[in-house]
Design a protein around this nucleic acid. Structure first.
Length: 938
RNA sequence: GGGCCUAUAGCUCAGUUGGUUAGAGCGCCCGCCUGAUAAGCGUGAGGUCGGUAGUUCGAAUCUACCUAGGCCCA
């Protein structure tokens, strides 16, 4: 209590007081808050409280249960949390059920690698058990990582695609598609390892240099084919093609030209004519060692379309087709096309109705369809094909080259591209493509260009190949008759299997025999046989996650179908949005969502992709350890997610600074509310001083802006509005001016209580507005608010502030904005004096204003307020001679003179007054403080 | 190579239907205060709007091309 001499009156001031720490200590405090939320079952209470309100469902896109989360995953989850929390506070029922995608290749491959050669020793069932374990392990890890970010949701009961129930639903959704006739079996080329006798996924293929034959071959065409120049008449004309896989010529069905490239007919010394792309003549002739050739004239590729050429050594024709994939990079511009042996070839084959011809068996040997080459290994057949070409005179040139070629990552052998039977969902069946496109139009895409993007993809995509030759997934529930080979893919049988899955999961497919999986007494409809074999393929994982609207939204009582929003990165236009749309349209004739929001990808400070190689990777765990999850949340809220999202040490440092400013503002507000009881001390709005009402006007503007932005899923305007309000309106203006009133006026005076009324309202409302973003800090400050019965025990149980029309006062705002502009000029004048070393603290000053005509009335009217507004000891209206004082460059005609304020500095309030010393009992106090302490001391 | 998208001060963002010296906050420089103190306040300096060429009386804002970057295909 014993104050120093110069602090005699300190005890009579109402200085700020609070336990709310300036230092956030987020990495330490956040886990404590999370634990408390857990204990108090905060999320259950939120759901309970909002039950019955209009639903707003954000359906979670399941991340893949593999590895730790990265900064992009964190961004995505926090963005979802902003949507969900803000919609709760907007007055919705917005339950969030997180999910995980558990089946699929990445886990399958990882488990396979971990097993190494042990894979051969264990059963498929045991293998799947290990995959399940792996998925569960990472699901648990990621769940903790997501929770640590402060994201709320039903974490104890998420949806999991490997749950038995979910697996049964996948199978039932598949059944519906079968029922509706979307599913068919067809051929499609896949990577095939002849040594392992297995199909390979893209990820299982490694590229390495390989020496291959490089041959140029003639495909003869009639000399009177339209599109050829007249000079070719009577000559032997051929399309020249180039290939590095001669054996695939056996399966050649077409030669492809680019519709828009220039082609020419070239006569070579033996009198024959070759057709090739003009841009490749020079290079091609050199490679074929042909000299002395002569270009006869242009060839029109479009005229050649659907004409035929002659297979070089088999007794059949090949079709001439057009494709945009043809390039001038190598070869001749005429591309040998074997639909059974190449992806582009396959697609071109579909387009032109060619057979997916692939006369090669599992072991990489030609089948009888290949005629005399039957039984021959395809790579070994290269030489025989070359010999055949030589014999028929179609071989232009043969040499060998070294190039990059796909190899099996297990056995290291070169692989082949080979057509195998696969299961498909037909895009044209039941107008699937058309219906999907129509549904896209009805959906709200945020940003709007998402519509073009996904429409383009749906427009151009081939049929969906849904079969995968792996183990870790949901089996395709087809059966094959062992005696006649007939395929059985029937709704009733599928439904039977789905029923089994409910109790035992899809493992049952591997555990039970075909007869155990089929209803008793099932017989082959064709041959009457009763022995069946199970399909070996599983479903594409996109089928799993794409079924979530059925497995989750329709089945969880708190959710519904369709939902309001799907929200993921823009890669999901090809992924989850896409598969969900096709499955939902295929089974229910509508999109599963009313809206789809996409965000960009996280990149570094320069806008470059993050990679270990570049050393620019930022890990969420590191940011959390250094700054806290709150800063990650602030980052998510501060960036415009429509574009790529940048993150760098500098960005984080800036955000940490912005955070400190906001936190300190909260703290300062709290520290001046220690003796304020909202119920009994609040002053009526109409009796508040003008500046207080002006501040509430500003607050209502910020509220409107922020709430509107939340409604539109725009978060960075909220961040900017809150930050700017704290910095500009509060810290630099209102609070700075208010200190005098808060500290020096009697504690219970109307003036001080008015100020506190505003501070309380400002803080209480700012915390609500900040809560979705600064979930930890808003809660911490909320709990430090002066107590008020009936207030929600957590800020996350509160709603956003209601609009306050009575606070809005544009006329008042206009007046005060003018005063603030004058204030700015006065501050410049004061700063000028300070530079001249004539002034330190502004309270040493008296300012004299000479206003221009348009400000004269205003400033005269507010003259008594001005000294407080400027935080000087006096402010008067008067004459300032030209050339004297400070002339405002912005407010034309405003002149400001700064003088030393006359009198002495009051020991208590520090302002300078000529009336200091009037009372001999308090010789160091000014007139204002005399009044104040008499009230305070009684 | 194709589809979709992005490009305003060191950072995060504003810039209505093209029209006076392109704005805000932060950061930075310098200074003040010491009753928000690992705080608070103030002044100031920084962009010609990714580049080029057009349309126009006039463009950051419209068009074309180019460059850089991102996602998805190939």
């Amino acid at each position: 209590m014993a104050k120093q001499k110069e602090d005699r009156y300190r005890a009579t001031l109402n200085l700020p007081k609070t336990d709310f720490p300036m230092k956030a200590d987020l990495p330490k405090r956040e886990p404590e808050t999370l634990a408390r939320w857990d204990r108090e079952k905060l999320y259950a209470r939120i759901l309970e409280k909002s039950k019955g309100r209009p639903r707003f469902i954000l359906h979670d896109g399941p991340p893949y249960a593999n590895g730790h989360i990265h900064i992009g995953t964190a961004f995505n989850k926090i963005l979802k949390d902003l949507v969900v929390k803000s919609h709760f506070m907007l007055g919705h029922y917005s339950p969030y059920i997180p999910g995980w995608d558990c089946h699929g290749l990445p886990i399958d491959l990882q488990v396979e690698q971990e097993l190494g050669t042990d894979k051969e020793k264990i059963s498929k069932l045991e293998y799947r058990r290990r995959c399940r374990e792996h998925a569960q392990k990472y699901l648990n890890i990621q769940r903790e990582e997501f929770r640590r970010l402060g994201c709320l949701g039903v974490w104890e009961k998420p949806y999991i695609t490997m749950d038995y129930d979910y697996e049964a639903t996948i199978t039932r959704e598949f059944r519906k598609l079968v029922e509706r006739g979307f599913v068919y079996r067809g051929l499609k080329p896949v990577f095939w390892c002849a040594s392992c006798q297995t199909a390979l996924a893209e990820a299982e293929v490694e590229y390495a240099d390989l020496t291959s034959p490089s041959i140029f071959v003639k495909f003869a065409i009639a000399d009177d084919t339209p599109g050829l120049p007249p000079e070719t008449r009577g000559k032997k004309v051929s399309l020249a093609i180039w290939t590095t896989t001669p054996w695939t010529l056996v399966a050649n069905l077409a030669v492809c030209l680019h519709p828009d490239l220039d082609y020419v007919a070239v006569q070579i010394p033996n009198g024959e004519v070759l057709v090739m792309a003009e841009g490749l003549v020079l290079q091609g002739m050199a490679e074929m060692d042909i000299e002395g050739y002569q270009v006869l004239g242009p060839v029109s590729p479009r005229d050649l379309e659907k004409k035929t050429c002659r297979h070089p050594f088999l007794n059949r024709d090949s079709l001439i087709i057009l494709g945009e994939h043809v390039t001038l990079e190598a070869g001749t511009g005429c591309v040998h096309t074997a639909p059974g042996h190449g992806q582009e070839d396959y697609e071109m084959g579909l387009k032109y109705g060619l057979e997916t011809f692939s006369p090669v068996d599992d072991k990489g040997r030609f089948t009888s369809e290949a005629g005399y080459l039957v039984g021959e290994m395809v790579f070994k057949a290269d030489a025989q094909v070359a010999a055949e070409l030589q014999k028929s005179g179609a071989l232009l040139k043969s040499r060998s080259i070294s190039h990059s070629y796909p190899h099996c990552w297990r056995c290291g052998k070169p692989i082949v591209f080979r057509a195998t039977p696969q299961w498909f969902i037909g895009m044209e069946k039941g107008d699937l493509r058309k219906k999907a496109l129509a549904e896209i139009k009805k959906t709200r895409w945020i940003p709007a260009w998402g519509e073009d993007r996904i429409s383009g993809m749906i427009q151009n995509r081939p049929d969906w190949c849904i079969s995968r030759q792996r183990i870790w997934g949901v089996p395709i529930p087809a059966f094959y008759c062992l005696s006649c080979g007939e395929v059985r893919l029937e709704p009733a049988l599928i439904e039977h299997v789905a029923g089994i899955y409910e109790a035992r999961g899809a493992d049952a497919w591997f555990e039970l025999s075909a007869s155990e999986l089929l209803p008793p007494g099932t017989k082959c409809a064709k041959c009457g046989g009763d022995k069946f074999e199970k399909e070996k393929d599983i479903l594409d994982v996109w089928f799993d996650s794409g079924s979530s609207f059925a497995a989750v939204c329709e089945r969880r009582p708190e959710l519904a179908y369709p939902v309001e929003l799907y929200l993921e990165g823009s890669d999901q236009h090809r992924g989850w949005f896409h598969s969900s749309l096709l499955l939902s349209v295929g089974t229910r004739d509508r999109a599963p969502y009313a809206g789809v929001l996409t965000h960009g990808f996280t990149v570094d400070g320069e806008g470059k992709k993050m990679s270990k190689h570049l050393g620019n990777v930022i890990y969420p765990s590191e940011v959390i350890d250094k700054y806290g999850a709150e800063i990650v949340r602030l980052w998510v809220a501060s960036e415009d997610y429509r574009d790529d999202i940048r993150i760098s040490p500098e960005i984080l440092e800036r955000l940490a600074e912005a955070y400190r400013k906001i936190r300190n503002t909260f703290r300062f507000l709290l520290s001046n509310l220690y003796d304020f009881h909202p119920e009994k001390d609040s002053r009526p709005f109409t009796e508040l001083p003008e500046i207080d009402r002006y501040l509430l006007h500003r607050l209502s503007e910020v509220e409107k802006r922020a709430v509107q932005s939340y409604r539109e899923f725009n978060y960075y305007p909220v961040f900017h509005a809150l930050h700017n309000f704290c910095v500009v309106d509060l810290s630099a203006f209102y609070l700075d001016i208010l200190k005098d009133r808060l500290y020096t006026f009697p504690a219970d005076s109307a003036d001080r209580r008015s100020a506190q009324t505003v501070l309380y309202l400002v803080l209480e409302n700012l915390l609500r507005l900040a809560a979705p973003i600064l979930s930890f800090t808003a809660e911490e400050a909320w709990l430090a608010l002066p107590s008020l019965p009936g207030r929600e025990p957590s800020v996350h149980l509160a709603l956003f502030p209601e609009p306050r029309p009575e606070w809005e006062n544009p006329g008042l705002a206009e007046t005060w904005e003018k005063l603030i502009a004058v204030r700015g000029e006065v501050l410049k004048a004061l700063e000028k004096e300070r530079k001249e070393k004539r002034l330190g603290n502004s309270l040493e000053a008296r300012v004299i204003l000479q206003p221009p005509a348009e400000l004269k009335d205003l400033l005269s009217k507010y003259q008594p307020e001005l000294r407080y507004l400027f935080i000087t000891s006096a402010a008067e209206i008067g004459e300032v001679g030209s050339g004297e004082g400070f002339e405002s460059p912005d407010l034309k005609g405003l002149r400001v003179r700064v003088q030393k304020a006359p009198g002495q500095k009051c020991e208590r309030c520090w302002s300078v007054s000529e009336k200091v010393g009037q009372d001999s009992a308090h010789p160091t106090l000014c007139e204002r403080c005399l009044v104040a302490i008499k009230k305070t001391l009684g």
